[in-house]
Design a protein around this nucleic acid. Structure first.
Lengths: 156, 156
DNA sequence: AACAATTCAATCGTACACAATATAAAAAGC
DNA sequence: GCTTTTTATATTGTGTACGATTGAATTGTT
């Protein structure tokens, strides 16, 4: 058995772990988003749901879950709060009554205009060029997809 | 009114947002970690606290919070669960009674040996070279630090 | 047609995460 | 010395996250 390398346990060191970098960056993003989203009356996961709906209206809960990698246990109460806020409506599909279709209300549609102000503010806060952010984004997304494949999550 | 440009609202598209890449990657990491950490009887945030303590024992709650970017509202109940599990002990500092010092129990020390198996498994799941992961890690950490600076979070 | 297997959403229990507030100890100012 | 301010932790309330289970609806198979 060989002796330990010079920096014993370096793999267990917090700052060496990519997962912690990602975990803490996620929180950091949330902190930057919060004041911006407060103006829209949304939390960050709620904002993600709205992004999905602004891309395509009238989606089943399951599809929202597939796009955001969230399950019904998370989405059901979140969607109820969005409904409470008057931004979406929930209705069982008539073709397949197992599904609940999520649609935007007029108010939910309108909110998109205010939301356009958000991404530029984030870009500014990151103090990065668009090219840099795009590169990191694609690397992280690729890493995420490999991890999800490993954990048996079916992608989009 | 002009027609929409080819990629109207591209900034609002889910997959174009780096924050979503980070957010979803963080969840993906959690999914990969879960079965590994279940064997240690830890959740991921609990594992992070243990990493801090394995690096240096007998730290105040505040310092743990600074390293992990978490506040007492998160840490207090988490630390109580770790105490319940017999991995740590909590004791008010005698010099400064505002501080609660967190120390490893013998059992908490021992757990480090089992924990050494975790990082290699993560590395394998990522299907990346160490060099690639290191590069992404440092980019994300740098981004996180800029975002935190923007949000007024005092670094380490 | 009948029934087993699957799918989808909801529910429940546990565990973060953070804002806001409370409390108590220590430090600073006068 | 005594008040004010700051600091460290704890508490409470709201909102995610996710595993496990349930129940209703659909599909697949015989």
């Amino acid at each position: 058995m060989a002796r330990k390398p010079p920096s014993a346990d370096s793999l267990l060191q917090l700052d060496n772990q990519i997962c912690f970098a990602v975990y803490s960056a996620s929180h950091a993003f949330n902190r930057v988003y919060k004041p911006l989203l407060d103006r829209l009356g949304l939390t960050y996961p709620q904002y993600l749901v709205m992004l999905v709906l602004w891309e395509r209206d009238g989606v089943a809960v399951k599809e929202i879950g597939e796009r955001l990698y969230l399950d019904s246990g998370t989405l059901t109460p979140l969607l109820k709060r969005l409904e409470q806020a008057g931004l979406i409506k929930r209705a069982r599909s008539t073709e397949d009554e197992r599904q609940v279709l999520i649609g935007l209300t007029a108010q939910g549609q309108t909110l998109k205009d205010k939301a356009r102000a958000v991404p530029p503010s984030i870009l500014a806060a990151s103090q990065c060029s668009v090219a840099e952010l795009t590169a990191i984004r694609d690397e992280i997304a690729a890493l995420r997809d490999r991890l999800n494949a490993m954990a048996g999550v079916n992608g989009r």
